[in-house]
Design a protein around this nucleic acid. Structure first.
Lengths: 214, 214, 214, 214
DNA sequence: GATGAATGAGTTTTCATTCAT
DNA sequence: GATGAATGAAAACTCATTCAT
């Protein structure tokens, strides 16, 4: 079996990354030691330096991996979304606030990495390109809606984009600080309330208005 | 002179706290070592244990200090605000997005502590009690507005509170990740756009509507 | 073809030995790691243990190889030398200070092994047995000269041997410490000056006096 | 006692250096680990990094120290030497081959440091200035002798200097490789034989001719 | 009270060796 | 036979804390 070793190699790389993410989520970055990582991964000490050349690189790779997973998940969802702009936006909101993405582990990891300038900037390069794509998707959806509504306010679509994404970010922070009392439905309702207030015939408290607006 | 000693004591305590905050802002929590702190403060190694009994306590005190400063600043602003609920809310928004509060140092510190908060409950603590006070101020303002508007939706005020605070949080995250391209006026406009959409006769893109609504 | 395999085997052994010598010359013994060696040799990690049973054995073999090369070269030269004792001595001097033998790589290797020799008796060993042969060649040449000169001083030949070899050693050290400013001709002249001073009618500043002394 | 701590600090620095030199002499550089050093010095692990910032720096400091001791010792001797050039040269020879300087420990250390390019070049900078001073002392002594002898050969004094120092180096190598069979008197006799051969009325097999030469 | 040299537990890193493929 | 991923003992280094001065 020729590929087995190669396959195992990749498996171990991934096991280390997952171990880092688990540890970061549970104990925080500063308590994520090499010993902690290898114990969780059930691998040997030397492996980290073999595959990543050092702990720091591994931690960064883990940050990269986590960010990649987030964007991949979101883009998967969008591929399934309907064509109307409001449906696409609804999909993003539901994705971003859904259990698969917004959960204790992810939120802890996300904030842990953001907490230190070092990791922040290391991940930023990659994250920003993906973020820009997401931002543009939202922006083009809002632009279509604004055009449909014959809105004269040139900044409305851009502000709505910026505002929606900021609101979703804020929900994540909420979750981080109060995971016990966080209410997913409430977060969703608040978000749609914001959308409904800005684009009344396109959104309701429950989500997108799917029927075409006459 | 006993008073002078006491005064010096307090000065040193503060110098250490500020040194921690500077270091946390610049290097992050995990690179904020005792050596880093005393070098910045220009004080001796033993000082930390003399005044705080250990590094962890000092870091915690620094976090506490930082959050206290934030809420103190906000309350100062509120003391100057008009009586109307929309003015009080405007004051909070302007305070939260103003230069004095929303700047690189503060944002870095805030996120650094949050990144570790999950694991160090001691750090998490100070974020909470005060948080409730701000939340209640906003909630009571929105409740008054909702009552004025004869809103039937029982959750509107609570949702608006939650939404506004989340939006502001999101703006902070924006600033954290892209301090260079952050536009304070845009953030303000977006926030008021959200408020204006929900409470049209109380807010405009520019801020609170101060005149009484007939 | 069985012979080809055998040939390849020998090729790999040699490649490893040369890689060790290159690394020792450039980086020193303590920085000559297995990784360094296999990278230079372009062979696999396991090869070292396959052929030599471990790194230490390989390093020792490399030292042995290097010293063998030195003595082989010297004996080649002597085979070409004239019969007279002064010619044989001249040959040794020219060989020892010539480019083929006295060059940066060799000197670095030589001193690197000597630096560790005291502690690793295995390394010390190969420096010794061969050394005796060289010493005896020189000694017998000087003994013949001393007898020819009717020297009464019983120790003269032995002292001359010891002195000449020490002088040559000293020249190597000179080269080691200042390869840039080392002057091969000067080294040669000094050596022959020493010989000419001790055995005036057998040596001049230029080398051996070849004509028979009446 | 104000200076006691400072004094202790210096004592510990020195203890570490001596421990390194002992270990290098006995076990060689590659087996001189931090654990080995602190055990010999009876000090704590952290001390090395406190005083020297790392093992490498300590090892280099030790090399520096050893070299300094050598030159200091030699210069002390010269201060006691007579005025005549032959007496000064005799002093250098006796110093260099005497027990205080030429002993197992020193020779092992000297060659260990020379064995690796890294240490060699690190010490070279300092060593070379001192070496140049020594070399000049010898050169000026030989120059005076050559002038006294009305020697026409312009290079004689320079060659004698170079040759003498090379010969002494060679004796050290001898000692390194065969500490058991090394004979200090023989080394001395050979060296003076070389000097006597070149400057007959100034040196004998026993040393300098002190009486003025008519 | 203040200092900063000293400690040593705990962390990251290196690297010769092993062994499944 | 050859490979190179995997191992883990041992190495270097960091750093909060202590305590003699």
């Amino acid at each position: 079996m020729a590929g087995k070793r190669e396959q195992n190699r990749e498996q171990n790389r991934l096991a280390l990354i997952e171990a880092v993410l688990d540890s970061v989520a549970e104990k925080g970055i500063s308590e994520t030691s090499v010993s902690e990582i290898i114990q969780r991964a059930g691998l040997s000490r030397g492996m980290i330096h073999l595959h990543f050349g050092g702990k720091d690189n591994l931690v960064q790779a883990a940050g990269h991996h986590s960010s990649q997973e987030y964007y991949d998940g979101l883009e998967d969802l969008l591929a399934q979304a309907g064509d109307s702009p409001q449906e696409r936006i609804e999909m993003i909101v539901r994705g971003d606030l859904g259990e698969r993405v917004l959960n204790q582990r992810n939120v802890s990891i996300w904030y842990a990495f953001r907490g230190e300038a070092r990791n922040r900037s290391a991940i930023a390069a990659f994250s920003d390109t993906r973020d820009a794509r997401l931002r543009n998707m939202v922006l083009s959806a809002f632009t279509r809606i604004a055009r449909d509504m014959n809105m004269t306010d040139a900044e409305a679509a851009r502000d709505a984009t910026h505002g929606l994404l900021a609101l979703l970010e804020g929900m994540w922070t909420d979750y981080l600080l109060h995971p016990d009392r966080f209410d997913r439905d409430e977060a969703m309702r608040i978000t749609f309330r914001f959308l409904a207030a800005m684009f009344p015939s396109y959104f309701t408290l429950k989500g997108a208005v799917v029927q075409p607006q006459t």
